[in-house]
Amino acid sequence: MLELALGIILGGCAIGAGLAMIAGIGPGIGEGNAVAKACEAIGRQPESKGDVTSTMITGCIIAETTGLYGLVIAILLIFVAPRQFVNILMETIGK
């Protein structure tokens, strides 16, 4: 039984980490759009390259945030969560 419980915990953590990384899709599309528009703008007005680039980078950073939330959750689920959950399980069994 214990092996089954451990397997479910580890498997659940791995699946959760994988699902959390779906959050990477949104920022990818969003940043792609932003860069495409910036390229268009630079093509239209090459002299405004500096301003457009810095604004685009700022926008990209902010768009990236949601993806990074997902990444942090995935990292926590893989490296931190299993130990915590196993500890909880062991404490429950110990009772």
């Binding site: 950073i61 990236e64 945030t65 990074l68 939330y69 990444l71 942090v72 990292i75």
Partner: peptide, 16 residues
């Protein structure tokens, strides 16, 4: 929260 997560997430994911 977002400032801390952004910086730490980027560097940590790179090293991992």
């Amino acid at each position: 929260v977002s400032m801390a997560f952004r910086h730490y997430g980027n560097i940590l994911s790179g090293s991992i």
